[in-house]
Amino acid sequence: MYTSCTAFNLACPSSIASFGIRFLHHRRVSEAGIARNLRERFPNTSSMRRRHLAPLASYLELPLLPFVTNEVLVPSESKTLHLYEARYLALLEESLMRKKKLFVHFVLAPILVDDSSSEPSFAARYGCLVCIENVERLEVGALVSIRGVGRVKIVSFLQADPYLQGVVVPEHDKVPDSPSRLSSKVMEVKEALCSLNSVEIKLKAPKESLLQTPTANSLVWAEKEPFLDCDEAFIPSLTERVSFVGFQSVSGSTPSELLKLQNKKLNAMDLKDTLQRLDDSLELIKENISMVAARLAIQSLETQ
């Protein structure tokens, strides 16, 4: 099942995230301008590179794939991208060739730096290390299924051509003061997620829809210890992984509900408190259970 259509190609099918650079052109921002802006923020020189990397205990040099703010990806979430431009197919091949099958999904958030500037400036935010789960070759490009693994921060920009590449370090929550309380809250969230899955699969759905919802699929992934060819420092703890699972859309979500979800996802990515994120997740899951149950009741009435 294809999910999370991205705004980079406004003409793409609603079920597929089709990635290009067209959104940036609509905003009258060139790739050269983005590269120049990032180069200024992350100097591309050997001396600066050594200075950046020397004190870092854990870092990865990976391809970077930019998205707009409303396409933030959280750990445990899955998304299918349609990569069709040569530069992004080159990014894909590089990720597969390294055998790590990893790259970084991040958001280019516009920021106001200088009113006299002819081009907007961007901040590289909400970085998420992703692993490639499946690749389906097409006549034009490829469908790439990815999974968010954990948050990362871009600390150095290395290249702009043929695709963006940089150095990233892991970002994790602070160590909790009350492990027992955290464990209890995790169980509460998991039970709520199971309840949400139970009511959601009862909704009338297209024949091609899976019986397991994206949220339930993410929970299954989060409960397992991810096996990735990278430093373990990049893999969040079980509690941190579970705390992100609830931040996904449910069947029949309206545009206003999806906008509300995006804001909650941005807040979740900013938080460094696992317990607070679990509380926020639980609140959202309960709201979604009520919403789906109401739609289920309406559906039941319509079929009578």
Rank of each mutant, 00 (worst) to 15 (best):
F122V: 04
T45M: 01
D173P: 03
S156R: 14
V155K: 03
H172A: 15
L278C: 15
V220S: 10
F67K: 01
H82V: 01
G33R: 06
A86N: 08
K260A: 15
C131Q: 09
V130G: 08
C194G: 10
L96F: 01
K286W: 01
A268W: 05
T45Q: 05
G166I: 08
V149Y: 02
M1A: 12
A297H: 10
L182I: 06
K100W: 13
S290C: 13
A54T: 07
A233H: 05
C128E: 03
A297F: 02
P236S: 03
I21T: 11
E94V: 10
V72D: 00
N267I: 06
K153V: 10
V167F: 07
V169D: 01
L278Q: 08
P206W: 04
K100I: 03
K100H: 08
R51S: 13
V72R: 01
V68R: 10
A294W: 04
R41S: 12
G252M: 10
L211D: 13
C194F: 04
R295C: 08
L65I: 13
K224C: 05
R41D: 10
G20I: 00
R137G: 02
G166K: 00
V140P: 01
T274G: 07
E93F: 11
S198H: 15
Y126P: 03
F157I: 02
A11S: 13
V220I: 13
R181V: 08
P43T: 05
R181L: 14
R27T: 12
A268M: 09
K260F: 14
E139L: 11
S183A: 14
C194K: 07
P226T: 06
E171S: 03
S46T: 06
R50N: 13
S18N: 03
L53R: 12
S14H: 05
R147V: 12
A123Y: 02
K153S: 11
D173K: 01
K79N: 12
